[in-house]
Deep mutational scan, measured.
Amino acid sequence: RLIESLSQMLSMGFSDEGGWLTRLLQTKNYDIGAALDTIQ
């Protein structure tokens, strides 16, 4: 599930440099909407 969510976020133009996006998705239970809300 992480790989699916991460690949979708990467395709939106986000980077996972340093693993920050992986950690964010894990804390949000791989919910892309919740991750995007946090980023904004």
Rank of each mutant, 00 (worst) to 15 (best):
L25F: 04
T27A: 15
D16H: 06
N29P: 04
D37V: 13
L24G: 00
L2Q: 05
R1L: 12
Q40N: 14
G33H: 13
T27C: 15
F14P: 02
E4M: 12
L36G: 03
M9F: 07
N29E: 08
G13D: 01
L24S: 00
S7W: 12
D31A: 06
Y30I: 04
G19W: 06
L6Q: 01
L36V: 07
Q40I: 13
R23T: 09
D37Q: 15
S7Y: 13
L6V: 06
I32Y: 04
A34P: 03
I3H: 14
I32N: 03
Y30T: 03
T38P: 01
K28Y: 13
N29W: 11
Q26L: 12
K28E: 06
K28H: 15
E17H: 11
L36F: 07
G19Q: 06
L21D: 00
Q40H: 13
L6A: 01
G13F: 07
T27R: 15
S15G: 08
A34H: 05
L24K: 01
Y30M: 06
Q26G: 07
G33D: 14
G18T: 08
E4R: 11
E4A: 13
L2H: 06
R1S: 12
I32F: 07
S7T: 14
G19R: 04
S5H: 04
L24N: 00
L10A: 09
E4G: 07
S5M: 11
L25R: 01
G33T: 13
F14E: 04
G19V: 02
S11V: 10
R23S: 07
Q8H: 11
Q40T: 12
L10Y: 08
G13H: 05
T38W: 15
L2A: 08
L21P: 00
L6T: 00
Y30F: 12
D16K: 03
R1Q: 11
L24Y: 01
A34V: 07
T38D: 12
W20I: 04
F14Q: 02
Q40M: 15
S5K: 09
L2K: 05
N29K: 09
G33Y: 14
M9D: 00
D16Q: 05
L21A: 00
M9K: 01
G18C: 14
T27F: 13
T22S: 11
L21Y: 02
S7Q: 13
G13W: 09
T38V: 14
Q26E: 12
N29H: 09
K28Q: 10
S15Q: 10
L25D: 01
L6E: 00
I39D: 02
D31G: 03
S15F: 08
G33M: 14
D37N: 11
L25M: 04
L2G: 05
L36K: 02
L24W: 06
T22W: 09
I3W: 15
G13I: 09
G19D: 05
M9V: 04
F14G: 04
Q8S: 08
A34M: 09
S11K: 13
I3P: 09
Q26W: 09
Y30E: 02
L25I: 04
M9Q: 00
Q26A: 10
S11R: 12
T38M: 13
G33V: 14
M12T: 04
D37L: 13
G18A: 08
Q26M: 14
E17I: 13
D31M: 07
L10R: 10
G18P: 02
G18L: 08
A34I: 08
Y30H: 05
L6D: 00
Q8G: 05
T27G: 11
T27V: 13
M9G: 00
T22V: 05
D37G: 09
L6K: 01
G33R: 10
Q40V: 12
N29V: 06
L25K: 01
S5L: 13
T27W: 15
S7H: 14
W20R: 04
L21S: 00
S15T: 15
L21T: 00
K28S: 11
I39E: 00
G19M: 05
S7D: 09
T22Y: 04
M9S: 00
S7V: 11
R23P: 00
I3Y: 14
I32E: 03
L10N: 05
S7K: 15
Q8V: 15
Q40K: 14
R1D: 10
L6I: 07
Y30V: 04
T27Q: 15
G18D: 10
Q26V: 13
R23E: 08
I39V: 05
A35I: 11
W20A: 05
L24H: 02
E17Q: 10
T38R: 06
R23I: 10
D16I: 06
A34Y: 06
S5V: 14
A35F: 08
G13P: 01
E17W: 11
T27D: 14
R23F: 10
R23C: 12
T38S: 15
S15V: 11
Q40Y: 15
D31V: 08
L36Q: 02
F14A: 02
L24V: 05
L10T: 07
D37Y: 11
I3Q: 15
E4H: 12
L36M: 09
Q40D: 08
Q8E: 11
E17F: 11
G13M: 09
N29D: 10
A35V: 15
Y30L: 07
S15H: 13
M12P: 01
T27K: 14
N29F: 10
G19A: 05
Q8L: 15
D16E: 03
E17K: 07
L10D: 02
I32D: 01
L2E: 07
S5A: 15
T38E: 14
S11D: 10
M12K: 07
E17A: 10
M9H: 01
Y30S: 04
A34Q: 11
E4P: 07
G19H: 06
M9N: 01
S5G: 08
G13S: 04
M9R: 01
D31Q: 05
G33A: 14
A34T: 05
T38H: 15
E17L: 10
E17R: 08
K28A: 11
T22N: 04
W20E: 03
R23G: 03
E4N: 10
M12I: 05
G19F: 08
R23M: 09
L6W: 05
D16F: 05
G13C: 11
Q26R: 14
L25W: 04
G13K: 02
Q8T: 12
T38G: 06
I3L: 14
S15K: 09
I39R: 02
I39K: 03
A35S: 07
D37H: 13
M12S: 02
T22Q: 06
I3N: 12
S11Y: 06
T22F: 04
M12D: 01
L2Y: 10
L10G: 03
L24Q: 00
E17V: 12
E4I: 11
I3A: 15
D16Y: 03
S7F: 13
S5I: 13
D16R: 05
S15P: 02
G19N: 06
I39A: 03
G19E: 06
M9E: 01
Y30N: 07
I39H: 03
L25N: 01
S15W: 06
T38N: 08
T38F: 15
Q40A: 12
L36A: 04
Q8N: 08
M9C: 11
L24I: 07
T27H: 13
G13T: 03
Q26H: 13
I3V: 13
G19L: 08
D37T: 11
E17N: 09
L25T: 00
S11F: 07
D37F: 11
L21M: 06
D16S: 02
R23K: 12
Y30K: 03
G33L: 14
L25H: 00
S7I: 12
D37A: 15
A35D: 02
S5Q: 07
D31R: 02
L21V: 05
Q8M: 13
M12H: 05
G13E: 04
N29G: 11
G33N: 14
S7N: 14
G33P: 10
I3E: 15
S15A: 08
M9I: 05
G18N: 11
L24F: 04
Q8F: 13
L36E: 01
Q26N: 06
T22E: 03
L36T: 03
I3R: 14
L36N: 02
A34G: 06
D31H: 07
S7G: 11
L21Q: 00
